[in-house]
Design a binder for these strands. Sequence first.
DNA 1: TCTAATATCTGCAAGGAAGCAGATAATTCC
DNA 2: GGAATTATCTGCTTCCTTGCAGATATTAGA
Lengths: 148, 148
Amino acid sequence: MSTPPTEVFRRYLSAMVLNSLATAEAAGLNATDYYTLNLLDLSGPLTSGELAVRTGLTTGATTRLIDRLEKAGHVRRVPDPADRRKVIVEATGQLAGLDEVLAGTRRRIGELLGSYSDDELATLFDYFRRAATAYTEATDELIGARQG
Amino acid sequence: MSTPPTEVFRRYLSAMVLNSLATAEAAGLNATDYYTLNLLDLSGPLTSGELAVRTGLTTGATTRLIDRLEKAGHVRRVPDPADRRKVIVEATGQLAGLDEVLAGTRRRIGELLGSYSDDELATLFDYFRRAATAYTEATDELIGARQG
DNA sequence: TCTAATATCTGCAAGGAAGCAGATAATTCC
DNA sequence: GGAATTATCTGCTTCCTTGCAGATATTAGA
């Protein structure tokens, strides 16, 4: 009596969610800040206004959000040379400062991936690539109700 | 010039984190509440005290946490027949009420998984199963500093 | 049985994130 | 060049979560 597929996937999802939230917590980030860092990681630099739209916050709250992230060294404000009213927000590194916190997780997942053959890895990374797109589309749809 | 593996994986992770946080937000759950529901999903019913330890909250804050989740219909309090001081907290369903919110994500991932052969699916689900263990261990390690 | 320990809950206060409205600076359009 | 628009920021207030300390109920131990 093996575990059914949907159950396996559900456990995988829950385990990842717990891990990501525990990681954020350990790094001293609240949900909004963690969300924003992942957003910048995925989308690249965004203006303050774009961040406001993508996070669903007001521009005022977004200014405070950027303040927090900048103070913690996670992002930096860069003036937009083309429009000096705008502020471009870019991450200072790959989720700067999370490295120590992520180490244990990275090591375990790295070892796990190392146990697969090249063919299997090709399958897994094909999934990772396509799932990233699927998740991003699903997220946009989820947030879409808010933006239009 | 294809994308390097670590970059693919990083994008996958970020996309999942954004999706999970957007899901929680859409369901009206804050990070703590969402964490707790996933914890109950993964661990099964826990007492109030156990929840306090696993979330890192005080027992007082944990009472309020359970109040919120119970009011929203996500969990129910069950008296422990063996020790009537204790309160066992169990989820009312699989992340009750999140179904509509998760629909778009589930459909996309379902379609994606449907595009793989049986052999490939075996590889993917082997990964899901083992990665769940790896993430859980990494989470415990991350939280361990707090508990011991 | 009486006392100590344990589990949960409640009252109160503190801290932080967010909204709102108005201020400031820069750009666009006529 | 001047008015209207746009982008970000600031002051103030509100709401929500959490901690802390003490209350209550139950169990365990001498």
